[in-house]
Computed example of a mutant assay.
Amino acid sequence: MNLIKIKVIISLAIFVVAIVLIMLQLPENSQGEVIVLSDNESVDKSPLSVTIMHPEGVGPHPAAVLLHGCYGVSNKHHQWSKTLNEWGYTTLIVDSFSLQGIQEICTADDRIWQHFNQQRPKDALIALNYLQSLSEVNSNEIVLFGWSYGGAITLKVLEKSSTTQGKGYSAGIAFYPSCWQYQQYMMSGKDYKAAVPIRILMGEDDEWTRPIHCQQLLNSDKDELQQQLWTYAGAYHNFDDQQQRYQFLNHVRRESKQHPWGGVHVGYNKQAHLDAQAAIKTFLKNNFSEQKRLSPEALLDAAASL
């Protein structure tokens, strides 16, 4: 009997050791490492939560900053981060809400929106400065991604006439931004001119942020290679979120002064998602090898203007 017990104990010990060895070989956190950053140049020094995710290899790697929409960080941003990691990018998901006790602002009043209209471009700069401090990152190859409200912030940060222009970002990707909101609340000039190549991606059937407003915003630009609008047939808002079922959302902020609240359709579209992935991969590959960089002097002057 004692011999049997000893064999059982030995077997259990071997099993436990095997499990431990397997666990040690797994990634520490498939969702990335959460870091709290602070803006040392700001008066209130508001902390900012970010999640960094790494590609394979030593680097230096190109990098991407990801800005969420009015519903905050979701699985969609982590999935895009993993895709970018596979392409060789270090990624930083910026969470502008959680440390301020905010879950979402899709239903918030104008006062809340105005606060974040001022804060979020600064968040994009804090994230950029952090990535540029990392030895694993190529500081000349950092792209700014934004979704919905974050897409509008991306337009603002990369606008030529903006006080936050350039800052070392090499390109921009804006998923279904509210170009109407951008024109209403954040635009500093009459004609939109991007400081770097930028692409806007939208579903043709998007009712929440309508492509027509982005088309009007870009109509004045004669440099078609600098900024373009790409649309996808049969796609609604949030078409790239694999967890977004087709549904109708009631009472959300819309693009209208007369009827600012209403209902919209949202839903995942696999083909549009795959097409967007392929288009973005090609866009980044082309622009990071050819993009002209702002001089160090220009970056210092821009930083001093904040």
Rank of each mutant, 00 (worst) to 15 (best):
L201T: 05
H237P: 05
N238E: 12
P197M: 10
H237G: 08
C179Y: 00
A195M: 10
I198M: 15
P197C: 10
E207A: 13
Y185P: 00
A195T: 15
Q244P: 07
Q243P: 05
S178H: 00
D221E: 14
Q244S: 11
D240H: 02
Q181D: 10
G262E: 11
I200L: 14
A194H: 09
H251P: 01
I198W: 06
L201D: 03
M202C: 07
I200P: 04
I200G: 07
K190M: 11
E255H: 01
R245M: 12
S178R: 01
H259M: 06
P260G: 09
C179F: 01
W180T: 00
Q181Y: 15
I212L: 05
Q183Y: 00
K222C: 02
H213T: 10
T231E: 03
Y176K: 03
Y182M: 03
N250M: 07
E204D: 15
Y185G: 00
N238V: 10
H251F: 12
Q227K: 06
N219I: 08
M187Y: 03
Y176A: 01
H213M: 04
D206V: 06
E204R: 13
A233F: 04
D191V: 09
N219F: 11
G262L: 10
H259K: 14
S220T: 12
I173M: 07
N219E: 14
F248Y: 12
K190Y: 04
K190T: 15
R210N: 12
Q183V: 02
D191S: 13
W208G: 05
K193M: 14
Q243L: 13
H251I: 06
Q243C: 06
L249G: 07
D206G: 06
Q183G: 02
G189W: 01
